[in-house]
Design a protein around this nucleic acid. Sequence first.
DNA 1: AGATTGAACGCTTTGTTGATTATTCAGAAT
DNA 2: ATTCTGAATAATCAACAAAGCGTTCAATCT
Lengths: 203, 203
Amino acid sequence: MAEKNSVRDQIIEAAKKRFSHFGYAKTTMAEVAADCAMSPGNLYRFFPGKLDIAEAIATEDYSRHLDHLRKLAVTPGKDARTRLHDLLFEELRRTYHKLERDPRAYEMARVIATERPKFANWMLENERKILIELLDEAERRGEFTVSDKAYTAEMVQSATMKFRYPQLWSKLTLPKLERELEGVMNLLIDGLCPHKASQEAAA
Amino acid sequence: MAEKNSVRDQIIEAAKKRFSHFGYAKTTMAEVAADCAMSPGNLYRFFPGKLDIAEAIATEDYSRHLDHLRKLAVTPGKDARTRLHDLLFEELRRTYHKLERDPRAYEMARVIATERPKFANWMLENERKILIELLDEAERRGEFTVSDKAYTAEMVQSATMKFRYPQLWSKLTLPKLERELEGVMNLLIDGLCPHKASQEAAA
DNA sequence: AGATTGAACGCTTTGTTGATTATTCAGAAT
DNA sequence: ATTCTGAATAATCAACAAAGCGTTCAATCT
């Protein structure tokens, strides 16, 4: 039992090295198996297929990111606007840098996104839960007014789609993306209609 | 002079038929030339290349659409919210139906978008001008509060990206897209913060 | 002289073949 | 019985040849 898990981890580690070094397409199951001192066939006792190894790696990495986001969403001493800002910006920056830094990550992201569409949905759902919590608390404190939180969270995600996989949808640089996200966020919070309190703290 | 233009139009007509019937890739310059009873080489006196014929067709079609949008944006007797609604929905519906109806349109859209990135920018700019006018008038009437209209228009476009080329970014059906656009639009107008007038007309 | 042609050029796409690779499974090893 | 192997299989990929096409331009026509 504990053995099984350690073998699984060993495979993940070996694959991670290969994938990040040579890319997903250029690493073969035989190579990963050899790194683990086992036959290629044996890999299939631990994973249904090659893609599932990639997915496991992505899941592991993403979980850490998600924890980070959760912390940002509940940081005490910051108002809802700031926390929403931090959340959306962290999301943008992490994806941008990850894809910018190494082309391998880009390749894996593309493969998983096209072959496992459910995975992207799962990520969106996770982040939506965080958003809902944030909205919920913000309303309790009277910072936001939100009737249906789940729905609103979905709409916030919809409006910020462009910043989720930045370089898949545009060739904009990070500063330009940040400027846009800033603007969209302010619009989402303040809206176009005239406000109760136009400015609370100006300095 | 008048002759030159009629030849140009003849080429466009012939190409339009071929493109919509067999697709852009499967149409050859020789065929278009033959349809116009001229040699392939002669086409190049009227267009720099094949892509430019496609672009001319797209421009013609898009101009009509743009006129329609302009009318929607200035329809008298409707408030700004309704006009913004009509504008964004018309944009979504026309693109959706166009790409849904025939796969040829999808092919041409993709080719032009990838080979002529400027074209997509030009479309965005045109629509932004309409948005700016709408915002401008809305502010004069006190319906919206917008300091920098050009910037705000850009942000509205950014937040509604997902609905601009619907089937390039998701596999959602039109009803689902409409539901989302409705939500995003309301969020953009009303914002998350508490409002001056919570509800003006409830029935 | 200006307009038009169509063969020639080089690039891209397509079709084909051979090799690689993910995956399976009958059997060996423990 | 369970764990593992590695040759067999079927699918995918890479390399190359051939064909097709967009584009050009020297020659022809008006």
